[in-house]
Amino acid sequence: MVRLFGPLVGLFFAVALLWSFGNGAYNAATQPTPPTAEKLFHMHPKEVAFSFDGAFGTFDKAQLQRGFKVYQEVCSNCHSLKQVAFRDLAQLGYKEAEVKAIAKNWGNKAQTFDPKTGDRGDRPNLPSDHFPPVYYAGQGNPPDLSLIAKSRHGGAQYIHSLLTGYTDQAGYKNEAGEELLKKFPDAKTPDGLYFNPYFANLNLAMPQPLTSDGQVTYSDGTKATVDQMSMDVAAFLTWTAEPKLDKRKQTGWPVLGFLLAATVLAYLAKRNV
């Protein structure tokens, strides 16, 4: 029975697939899918190096503090950071009193609700609070930034590339030398959106956030160029996405070393048998 019906079923699927293949090939030949602007002009993130790259890389706390400042002064106007608590900032090297002050002076206040009176209000943030929600009424939906570095291909490199990637669409050419608006006249950026070849569909609702050198004043004397600020905030957002990165790698090496020794011993023990 199996040997009778088996080949029949197999041939049935094969013919059905051949049919799909034929239709697909015919369609591909007669009406090929035209290439899209996103496909030809979307850029991969710039290959920049961060201190936390690789199996030995760790966070640079001074850089994270600078990045936090960029987030605080620029990004936090529209983007929330709700998975992170103020107390977590202690990991960036802030003292307890500094964390308290940052929480207390944070622009958006913690929301309160009195279940007895039904009154809603606010109070200053405490270190134990998470970063408060940010409401944004303008165009677009600014995403929460807590996990942005892990939820985008390219992570920190993508964030840096996006922040420094705004450019004039008129006359923009890709690496192959093709001019976007000549090849796709319909791809002109709509009003209210901004052109950025590092963004998946080339146009995003966020205007260029880091526009000029010195936009943020660093307290450690680092020169706040746009490039520097974008690197710092990309590092900071990698930390918010993966705060245990340092601990993870620090744990990993001894574990691997132990396992290597144990495996060698296991091999010798096996040879003994």
Binding site: A85, R87, S128, F258, A262, L265, A266, A269
Partner: peptide, 30 residues
């Protein structure tokens, strides 16, 4: 070899036990 396996097994127990202790957000209850 057997001791290594034993030590490794015990070490692996540590996170499994310690995860039940109060987490950072509970400890931070101000």
């Amino acid at each position: 070899a057997v001791s290594f396996a034993g030590v490794g097994g015990l070490a692996a127990l540590y996170p499994l036990i310690s995860q039940m202790a109060p987490s950072a957000d509970v400890l931070a209850e101000s």
